[in-house]
Design a protein around this nucleic acid. Structure first.
Lengths: 335, 335
DNA sequence: ACAGCCTGAGAAATCGGTTTCTCAACGCGT
DNA sequence: ACGCGTTGAGAAACCGATTTCTCAGGCTGT
């Protein structure tokens, strides 16, 4: 029963011959197109199944002018954002028979160019550009391509579809959670002020406090995206009077630093101070003691939507351009 | 100067027509094959350049029976291993015009089957299977495929090429580093005992100590791959007499927990105790206080080699089967 | 001057499908 | 019995390359 030889692939000619019809009829039968009697259609399908026929996607793509593959460009080397996104894209597209070429281009424009050209040569139906931050574009111009492009978590031109998480809504949910815990002296320890998301989150933070009239104790501290900065911030906050009872952090690493620093000072989380992070990077959030309450950007869903949006563009369907903000979810743990 | 219309692609017919030759001659000229006069060859190449001709890879693949794309299968959802590997594979293959289909299959056999079929339909030249651990296979059988398969960081059949990091060598380097610091009472805090790498590292640990006759104080503690376990292990070690002055950890997360726990006990790292981790997961290792000395598995290089090995198999070249162990590097930081 | 070889180039087949066009056979209404 | 529309199926063109085969013309040797 061993499969001798390199198992020559079964072509549509083999199927047609075995079913005693022409390849034209075979093709029409297998694709449920054209005029073929039900009887013949079934017979051909049965024969195809028996022979284990699998159409050569390359040949099909050549005439259909659809390769059923798309390119995914990323400059995220750690994969912290890319892989969840990728998983979502892949999941959303595999149902439509679409596969994904992944290209990690870093910040190298030449490498990016090479990869984009390779993808275009392979006739990708479209491209998804992803990055780490929404206010910087990838190091390559994708606006003059002959295929549609969708941007996710990276800056795109205004006439394109760009998907991002709704950081404002996420931040609001985080602050409202702190308020619901009865916290009123809330600080925001966040990343570098040249990130657009930093401003969005900070502005939502301020507004949410404003709405309950709790602005008196509101403070925003800008720094870096590191645990180290979380420590420093606590040092600064605890060296003054009016210590906060709630801290909303710009990401989980900062939150991790904040929680660790508080513990080292003997401040109990969440009894004395409640802390909320951002990103739901499980490897950090779950290992923090106590596990971190944080905002999840639903990257997988964002990826799915990006994939489906690209598919609609490929099919020539109308798609609303501009920035799509997808909701974040608050993941409540013990902090 | 705007690009009106969907910019019809330039085909080899256009080039041939513009250069007043047949497509046969054009093809031969552009590929530096066949018999074409130098003069004609140059003219055709010039025309092709002027027209911006880029051959349709699909059409080319159809006759050449080489798609110049390979599939990458992974069950690693966080991308901690996959993305560096991917970057290496991609980097090694792009020079050869080969692109990579990435499929995240998790632990779902059906999904895996679907993706493998999609890749085969798209005529991938080969497949690279990657995972998180070398003693478990992916949830799909790749042994009866019509294309070559290379395994990286996952279990493969013995007659295939499997690339893994040389954990024994890496662990030896780690222990020797501790010994070079003058440490003699060394413990090994590592992951679950049902991981093969855990045994390899532990065995290398024991052997390295044996060679300098320092086995008296050698202890191996098995646990989980978490920071939490690092804390617990320190608690256990410090509750007895004969506390270690050097700790080799099974991964960076454990090491992170160990270092944090030591700091909380007022034990100085590295003055009182030296700690070495494993993985060089920078996001953990660099943020540990002090930054972690750790073993890097050189995953990018491993990926590059996996890609090149696959390419050789695709080209029908002889490749030594079995397990290839690639060296690890010790990254010395301050711990 | 003629057979034989080499060179450069094109015609045509091919890869594995899809799609358009054509056509024979059949049913139906009158 | 005749015209007409419908149906099922095949022949052939096509997608965009590569590759084999063929052949005219020039060169060489005797």
């Amino acid at each position: 029963m061993t499969n001798t030889g390199p198992s020559e692939r079964v072509t549509i000619y083999d199927v047609a011959h075995a079913a005693r019809v022409s390849t034209a009829t075979a093709s029409k039968a297998l694709n449920d197109t054209g005029r073929v009697s039900l009887e013949t259609r079934d017979r051909i399908k049965r024969v195809a199944r028996e022979l284990g026929f699998r159409p050569n996607a390359l040949a099909r793509s050549l005439t259909r002018k659809r390769s059923f593959s798309v390119g995914l460009l990323t400059n995220d080397t750690y994969g912290r954002f890319t892989l969840p996104l990728m998983a979502g894209i892949s999941e959303g597209l595999i149902d439509h028979g679409v596969s994904v070429f992944l290209c990690a281009i870093g910040d190298n424009p030449d490498l990016a160019r090479i990869h984009v050209n390779a993808m275009l040569d392979k006739q990708v139906d479209g491209i998804i550009a992803t990055g780490k931050r929404i206010d910087k574009p990838l190091p390559v111009d994708l606006t003059r391509l002959s295929v549609p492009v969708v941007y996710a978590l990276t800056a795109g031109p205004s006439n394109a579809v760009t998907l991002v998480s709704d950081d404002r809504q996420g931040a609001t949910a985080a602050v409202n959670h702190l308020l619901a815990q009865g916290r009123r002296r809330i600080a925001h320890v966040t990343g570098p002020s040249d990130f657009q998301v930093v401003h969005e989150r900070a502005s939502a933070f301020a507004q949410a406090l404003d709405e309950v009239g709790a602005t008196t104790h509101a403070r925003v501290l800008f720094g870096s995206w590191s645990e180290h900065w979380g420590h420093q911030a606590i040092e600064a906050l605890w060296s003054g009077a009016d210590k906060p009872d709630g801290i909303f952090c710009g990401n989980d690493q900062i939150a991790r630093g904040v929680v660790d620093a508080l513990r080292e000072r003997g401040v109990s989380v969440p009894d004395d101070v409640s802390v909320v992070g951002f990103d739901n990077w499980e490897i950090v959030a779950k290992e923090t003691r106590p596990p971190l309450t944080t905002v999840d950007m639903n990257l997988k869903e964002l990826g799915r939507q990006a994939g489906l949006a690209l598919l609609r563009l490929v099919n020539g369907e109308a798609v609303e351009t501009g920035v799509w903000k997808l909701p974040c979810s608050l993941i409540v743990r013990s902090s």
